[in-house]
């Protein structure tokens, strides 16, 4: 059984997974840098809450997920650094409220628990052509906008005060980033599940930051880790009949663990070779 069989049998799952992996992992670099790791899981729960509310009201689940997530983003994008309460605490409150509300809404919806769970938390391997279309239409522009605006977003996050004085409007760029993140998480969680999206937002960028200290290299490695993890996870799930989302998560974590173990050795070898080169040069 080869990877090609996986692509042949689940082309939509593979394509959808790769797009979600790439966009979420590059967005996730700022989730780590801004130290708001919990935002990934909180927004996923908020999206699930929106889906549950839509099911109750007979609306389109995607519309509900996006609407409720954008409301949460409006709350979370506020510069809490300037207030008594930290953003982490707000994220915790949002997470608790959203996860409780979604369960209560599900309870009242009259659907079977397994059915609602699959709608709320998604399964990547079940992604169909409609999911792929939705992901291309929403995540494609999000990824492109992020890449186009990454410089002012980086400057705003890097030094808020100085960028404000220089005429950049950090509040606007922060809001834009959180809106892009909220939309991406809302759409991706519905299809790939909250844990896998959280993995792309946190594990893959962490891998990038372990390997490099250059922003664009970190972004690239994060995306590469997410793509390899997704492919490996889907293949393993296909080969050994495992749950796809969790297997892809484990594959990304395994890559991170290997990188963490290998990088210090690699750096030592590089430092030794540079030292040797310098030493040899001086003798010559």
């Amino acid at each position: 059984m080869h990877a090609i069989d996986l692509i042949r049998q689940f082309p939509y799952a593979v394509a959808t997974g790769l797009i979600i992996a790439t966009v979420c992992s590059i967005l996730g670099v700022f989730v780590i840098l801004k130290r708001v790791v919990f935002i990934g899981i909180a927004l996923s729960e908020v999206a699930a809450c929106g889906i549950a509310a839509s099911l109750m009201l007979g609306l389109n689940p995607s519309v509900g997920a996006v609407a409720v997530t954008l409301m949460a983003v409006a709350l979370l994008a506020y510069p809490y650094e300037l207030r008594r309460i930290a953003r982490d605490a707000v994220l915790g409150i949002v997470f608790v409220a959203a996860s409780s509300a979604s369960l209560i809404l599900v309870w009242r919806s009259g659907f079977g628990l397994a059915e609602v769970k699959s709608v709320l938390y998604g399964d990547l391997i079940l992604a169909g052509p409609a999911d792929l279309r939705l992901i291309i239409c929403i995540l494609g522009p999000i990824g492109l906008m992020y890449l186009a605006f990454v410089r002012p977003i980086l400057d705003s996050f890097l030094d808020r005060d100085a960028s404000y004085v220089m005429g950049l409007r950090p509040a606007i760029w922060e809001w834009l980033y959180f809106i892009l993140l909220g939309l991406a998480v809302a759409m991706a969680s519905k299809i790939a599940g909250s844990i896998l999206v959280f993995c792309y937002l946190v594990v893959c960028p962490a891998m990038g930051l372990i390997v490099s200290k250059r922003f664009w290299v970190v972004v690239s490695i994060s995306a590469i880790c997410a793509v390899i993890g997704t492919m490996a996870g889907l293949f393993a799930a296909f080969r050994w009949d495992l749950p796809a989302n969790q297997t892809a998560c484990l594959a990304c974590c395994a890559i991170l663990v290997i990188a963490t173990a290998v990088m210090p050795i690699w750096r030592r070898i590089m430092a030794a070779s540079i030292w040797q080169g310098n030493n040899g040069g001086s003798h010559a």
């Binding site: 840098l33 130290r35 996050f157 030094d159 960028s163 922003f215």
Partner: peptide
């Protein structure tokens, strides 16, 4: 004000000054 977690070079920081 600059978080040491950010993987940015000196050149990038200095180029911020040219924003205007």
């Amino acid at each position: 004000t600059i978080d040491p977690l950010y993987p940015v070079s000196v050149r990038r920081i200095v180029q911020m000054g040219l924003h205007w």
